[in-house]
C-alpha cells in the first residue's frame, strides 16, 4: 500500500504520513487540498515531469493558511477554488466519473478531509494504490465514539466528553480509513469517575 505506511510499534492501523511522491505510472494527476495542504500540492507539483497532465481543486477559506494564490500560479490544465467541501467533493466525483485510466488522486490537508476525499475516490472505483494522501496542518483527530457512534472532528486531547452519550472517552490509535476516524472508548468504565490527567496531545 503506497498511500500510507503502518507503524512498526503500537496499534498498526494508525496511518503514518510521508510527503507525497508523484506516481510515475500516472497519466493524469488529480490534486486536491484544503488549508495547509496547499503546501504539499505545491511541493508535489514541483516533482512532476514537465509534460505531466494535472488539475488542482482547493478548498479555500477554511481554517489555517490560505494557499489559493500559490496554487493559482502553478502550471496546470485546470485549477479550481471551492468554498465548501460538499461542492469540492461533487467536482471531484464528476472528474473521476469521466476520468481516463491511469488517473491518480492526491489529497492533502487535515486528517478528516483527506480520508473523506479518499472515500470519494474509492466510491468512484479507484483502488487503494491509486490514492495518495498526506496530512498537513493540525494533528487534531477525527474520532468516532464506539458506544454511540457520534463523530467529532478535530479532537486535540487524549480524553474528551462525547457529545452523543456524555461519557468520558479516550482516543485510541486504532484507525478506520473507511470511517476516516480514530476510535474512542469509555475511559472510566472499570472505575467510574476516575479520570487520568487530560492533556492536549494532538495539535
Amino acid at each position: 500500500m503506497p498511500i500510507y505506511e503502518l507503524p512498526e510499534d503500537g496499534i498498526r492501523s494508525r496511518p503514518i504520513y510521508r510527503p507525497m511522491q508523484p506516481d510515475v505510472a500516472a497519466r493524469f494527476h488529480l490534486m486536491v487540498a484544503e488549508g495547509a495542504g496547499s503546501e504539499a500540492l505545491a511541493e508535489l507539483h514541483e516533482k512532476l515531469p514537465d509534460d505531466a497532465r494535472c488539475s488542482i481543486h482547493y478548498l479555500a477559506g477554511g481554517d489555517g493558511p490560505d494557499g489559493s494564490d500559490r496554487l493559482m500560479q502553478l502550471r496546470c490544465e485546470q485549477t479550481r477554488l471551492h468554498f465548501d467541501d460538499g461542492q469540492l467533493a461533487d467536482a471531484l466525483r464528476r472528474h473521476l466519473e469521466s476520468a481516463a485510466m491511469g488517473t491518480r488522486l492526491y489529497v492533502a490537508g487535515s486528517e478528516d478531509f483527506i480520508w473523506r476525499m479518499a472515500a470519494v475516490g474509492i466510491s468512484c472505483g479507484m483502488s487503494e494504490e491509486e490514492i495518495h494522501v498526506e496530512r498537513r496542518g493540525s494533528r487534531a483527530r477525527p474520532v468516532q465514539c464506539v458506544h454511540c457512534k457520534t463523530r467529532v472532528e478535530g479532537v486535540t486531547t487524549n480524553i474528551y466528553t462525547c457529545p452523543g452519550c456524555g461519557q468520558h472517552v479516550t482516543v485510541r490509535d486504532h484507525f478506520s480509513r473507511r470511517l476516516g476516524a480514530y476510535q474512542s472508548v469509555c475511559v472510566d468504565a472499570e472505575a467510574p469517575g476516575e479520570l487520568p490527567p487530560i492533556e492536549e496531545i494532538y495539535r
Binding site: 503502518l6 510499534d9 498498526r12 492501523s13 490509535d173 486504532h174 473507511r178
Partner: peptide, 20 residues
C-alpha cells in the same frame, strides 16, 4: 462496525507482540 473494510494488519492492529 469500526473494523469493517480494514485489511488483515489493520484489524489486528491492537494485538501486542504478535506483529513483531
Amino acid at each position: 462496525d469500526f473494523d469493517l473494510g480494514m485489511n488483515w494488519y489493520e484489524w489486528h492492529g491492537p494485538v501486542p507482540k504478535a506483529h513483531q
